[in-house]
């Protein structure tokens, strides 16, 4: 069953364009330029899917999330979440989705977390028994008990994010939009957040759309990746597919007994060298690992070796780098 439908979504903004003119000229006769934040993006997300929505800064990720959450109206195209049209049915939608913006808290700053939750109980009109049961569950899974009576302003970033996640899930939404939820967190806090999201997805069938710059989030949570760049969707597939497409090679680091001339064969080449060590790259579609090992053993006096499978982080870095250097006309199209 499809939970999120995005069809040919486009969103443009009118922004001030000073264009080198004086401040007075801009005041008297302001000029504007149109910024196309999202351009013809289409995808669907099934119920219970966890999907990463990746892209460099300014690619259009947060704008898409805001369109999905009913905060922004699409300039053209259609968006439906849980069968609802977000902007037109914003209040109904608010009861069905949870949203966490990593950079902004939804907690009331000066009151204890529990008080915020009590207020949200009224806002979402939750029956007391349901609220208590939900709160108990969140206490267990997010470890809220240790700081639920502390005002939001006194929480650590990790605690604040846990409390924010609790606030977003208090009313039992079926869809969760996470906009950089692990930004600024330490390793343990990130791990605890990921565990919670994974568990909620498994137990409640929660649909999750996640934007992040931390590729561990993607590796540990998502079965599918969407990549947006300059407002266009440039990839929609599994982590294995994205790796195949953007980093079609594997690197092998060799410990060698003595220096030999670098190897530069067809589809196998040396890419880095340090004293006693060199790194060789081969194209996976042309060679299997045993074939490459045989070739390398022939050329290098190998003492030891390590195979470096490409991480999602490396794949995405490569993707962003090539996107930044390619002219718009040569960027990958959906």
């Amino acid at each position: 069953m499809t939970e999120v439908v995005v069809h040919e979504l486009a969103k443009s903004f009118r922004v001030r364009d000073a264009g080198g003119r004086s401040a007075v000229a801009q005041l008297v006769r302001p000029r504007y330029a149109v910024k196309e934040a999202v351009r013809g993006v289409s995808f669907t997300i099934g119920r219970g899917e966890m999907v990463a929505y990746l892209g460099p800064n300014g690619a259009g990720k947060s704008t898409t999330i805001k369109c999905l959450a009913g905060i922004l109206a699409p300039t053209s195209g259609t968006v439906r979440v849980g069968g609802l049209t977000p902007v037109r049915q914003r209040k109904e939608l608010a009861r069905r989705v949870g949203v966490v913006f990593g950079h902004k808290t939804s907690l009331w700053w000066d009151v204890p977390v529990l008080d915020t939750y009590q207020l949200l109980r009224r806002v979402y009109d939750l029956p007391r028994a349901r609220f208590e049961a939900r709160l108990e569950l969140l206490r267990d899974t997010l470890g809220l008990a240790e700081f639920e009576r502390t005002p939001a302003r006194q929480l650590s970033l990790g605690q604040r994010m846990r409390a924010d996640l609790g606030a977003a899930l208090l009313h039992g939404p079926s869809v969760l939009f996470l906009d950089e939820p692990t930004v600024g967190l330490d390793v343990l806090a990130k791990e605890s957040l990921r565990t919670f999201i994974r568990r909620t997805n498994e137990t409640e069938g929660l649909t999750v759309l996640l934007t992040t710059h931390d590729m561990r989030d993607v590796e540990e949570l998502c079965q599918r990746i969407l990549v947006i760049d300059h407002g266009r969707l440039v990839f929609d597939g599994t982590p294995a597919e994205i790796t195949r497409r953007w980093v079609p090679w594997t690197e092998i680091t060799l410990e060698v007994a003595r220096p030999v001339p670098p190897m530069a064969g067809d589809g196998i080449e040396e890419v880095a060298r340090e004293p006693g060590r060199c790194t060789v790259r081969f194209t996976r579609s042309r060679y299997s690992l045993p074939e490459v090992m045989a070739v390398l053993a022939n050329h290098y006096p190998v003492l030891d070796c390590r195979v470096n499978e490409p991480t999602i982080e490396a794949v995405v870095r490569r993707m962003y780098e090539s996107s930044a250097t390619l002219p718009a006309s040569r960027r990958p199209q959906p």
């Binding site: 805001k66 009913g70 905060i71 209040k91 608010a94 009861r95 949203v99 902004k104 939804s106 979402y124």
Partner: peptide, 13 residues
């Protein structure tokens, strides 16, 4: 200024 208006707009009130 700080963008927290979005958070209030997400609520069903």
């Amino acid at each position: 200024r700080d963008g927290t208006l979005y958070v209030d707009l997400l609520r069903p009130v």
